[in-house]
């Protein structure tokens, strides 16, 4: 595992911000602008042919949203977590759906619930929530419940 990280550090010296180890898992914190290049390298040169998951986490106090990729090699079972911290005011990162097709829906889910925009995504639209939903529920400031019903909700007798 450390060989892959060393190679990444050599090829993309400006990309790697931090390498963290916890519970036997390695997390690579990368510069968001270089995240796609690092992931492309992992897929094409290091044999990480499977993207298990894309997730995200909002840290309101630090003003950032993390996008978390989980590439994996099905041949060796190697797995690496690549985390790209984005500013919460303008969370934009390049899509990886052209590297792994599975990223298409996974990125749409992150966009839908966390509001991260993926540049170059073929169809960046809401997937779990309705098209006209406002806000991004998984952000920490989003309330658990509101005062009113959803504005599009009308009781059956009031429907036109």
């Amino acid at each position: 595992m450390s060989e892959v990280i060393q190679e990444i550090a050599r090829k993309f010296p400006a990309a790697v911000k931090e390498v963290a180890e916890y519970a036997g898992e390695t997390t690579l914190v990368v510069e968001p602008g270089q995240a796609k290049a690092v992931l492309r390298f992992l897929k094409e040169s290091a044999g990480f042919n499977y993207l298990a998951d894309i997730s995200s986490a909002h840290w309101p106090d630090e003003g950032r949203i993390d996008v978390v990729y989980l590439p994996r090699s099905l041949k060796t079972g190697e797995q690496l977590r690549v985390r790209a911290p984005l500013p919460v005011e303008n969370p934009v990162i390049e899509t990886v759906s052209d590297i792994w097709r599975t990223a298409d829906w996974l990125e749409r889910e992150v966009y839908d619930l966390m509001g991260v925009r993926f540049g170059g995504h073929p169809n960046l639209s809401r997937i779990l929530l309705p098209e006209d939903f406002e806000g991004y529920p998984l952000r920490k400031e989003y309330p658990m419940e509101g005062d009113d019903e959803w504005r599009n909700y009308l009781p059956p007798e009031e429907k036109p």
């Binding site: 519970a23 998951d53 997730s55 995200s56 978390v68 989980l70």
Partner: peptide, 29 residues
């Protein structure tokens, strides 16, 4: 942060958890 996957009947069921320092997970994906 951890990612824990099990082989559920439908396939890989993964849990991505981020700790918060309290008894509530900061992120639970």
């Amino acid at each position: 942060e951890i990612y824990f996957a099990i082989e559920a009947p439908k396939g890989e069921l993964g849990f991505y958890l981020v700790g918060s320092g309290t008894n509530v997970a900061h992120r639970c994906h």
